[in-house]
Design a protein around this nucleic acid. Structure first.
Lengths: 247, 247
DNA sequence: GCCACCGGTTGATCTGCATCAAGGACTGTC
DNA sequence: GACAGTCCTTGATGCAGATCAACCGGTGGC
């Protein structure tokens, strides 16, 4: 870890997710309080952050990296139910265990708070509670959007929809223009994409190849994707034009 | 409307959803404020409450009846993304239009607040905001549970899962024991069930017949369902035993 | 009393994706 | 330099659920 990284990890005012996370609405004095409570945790790619059903005595935000929320049935079928990107929040006030597995898919740094103090905090600092409500409503909208994908879209449309989501989140974070070619690394394996989309990994692989052959996307290696024409990809995703370029 | 009904519709202290809705945490003085702001709206079965994209200048709770939240793609494919039962909340503070169609599937009575005053209210009465956060987190969990159903369950498991959800919500409202045979009316048509489950109405019909022939459920007419053995239905739904008999 | 319509059931056939199977590219290890 | 392991691709085949189609029963209009 460089000295620069270390600074980012100690001073809230330099935090890369300062303007998007639960703390984004805080007044300076509230931020001081959070600053004194917070601690950082790091997870390596592949490491499980919390197991479904296990006790969870902290809540927190993803600072960097990507994690997933998954549910698994007794016979092993698994469905991803959330993709946690930087600034996303994990944990629920008022509940002491996670109903989902939380897994780091890349190296992840989280900004954490112990659950009990955080719970008293949200009853007392309205700006945190308000921001948490807003973020939860956004998550709910995203989940409902995803229900349409899972329930009604074809395999090809599902892949296009996932690529769009990642492209949008990515460019929102990088501050891209939203115009011209977009390029990013897929943070997920084919299998993880399959779990997100309710498909098999073979189908994911075939549909990515199909989109490549159709010229809708191009690949360098297996993970780096370039989208020459976002509108064409939206067409493939059967996305309504609304939603635009926002997350 | 009988005099009794009229009373239920004017006095919060007798309201059937008093202990579950957004107002359930309110202190008496907060409740007085809400009482003075609220107004009732009725919708007939089949009537659209709000169209997707339309301006929505109120928020509110379902007092009685059942409504649905649906998304429709340009080519007509539709996916239900929420089932609104009594005490459920509609509308989002900070947004002036609905991203979903809201449709009454039975006659519905709603307890409404104009959006602007409600928004100022939630910044000032923490108990409403806290309850709204809790309800939104519950909705998010329900949506994620549903993602597993949509993404990974078979048609038969989907039907069993839906029947379980309705049975649970129903018995929670009626205060049933959770043991012994359970019996209820389906509020949804076969087509609406198909839209909820990401199936066609023919498949819904076939799977209901199959569950009936297998003795897992019995039907009187097309809508009244009796479940002789809840555990057997849970088996069919491939539900983990957790979740138990709560909503 | 006739007809139209709506919600539902059931049958025949088709098809998109799952499943089963083989092998390639790359990485790290000894 | 051989190897094992991980991630991915591609091909062959099977099947669950979609699609197309016919028909049933109840209900409301006139």
């Amino acid at each position: 870890m460089t000295a620069q990284d270390q600074k980012l990890l100690t001073d809230c005012s330099d935090c890369p997710i300062r303007h998007r996370a639960v703390c984004s609405r805080c007044e300076p004095n509230e931020l001081d309080l959070l600053e004194s409570m917070k601690y950082y945790r790091s997870f390596e790619a592949g490491q499980t952050v919390v197991w479904s059903g296990d006790r969870m005595d902290f809540v927190g935000s993803v600072v960097s990296g990507v994690a997933t929320l998954t549910q698994t049935m007794e016979d092993g079928r698994t469905q991803m139910v959330g993709l946690l990107l930087p600034s996303d929040f994990i944990g629920r006030p008022g509940r002491d265990s996670s109903p989902y597995d939380v897994v780091a898919v890349t190296d992840v740094v989280m900004c954490c708070f112990r659950r009990a103090p955080f719970e008293t905090l949200i009853t007392e600092t309205p700006h945190v509670a308000q921001r948490l409500l807003q973020m939860t409503l956004d998550d709910l909208d995203a989940a409902r959007e995803w229900m349409l994908v899972l329930g009604r879209k074809t395999a090809r449309e599902k892949i296009a929809s996932l690529l769009l989501i990642i492209a949008r989140r990515d460019s929102a974070l990088q501050g891209g223009t939203g115009l011209g070619p977009v390029s990013f690394d897929l943070p997920l394996t084919r299998e993880a994409m399959a779990d997100y989309l309710g498909l098999t990994l073979e189908t994911v692989s075939r549909q990515i190849s199909a989109l490549r052959k159709a010229g809708v996307i191009s690949l360098e290696g297996k993970r780096h994707v370039t989208i020459p024409d976002i509108a064409a990809l939206m067409e493939e995703a059967a996305d309504d034009a609304d939603g635009g370029f926002l997350v």
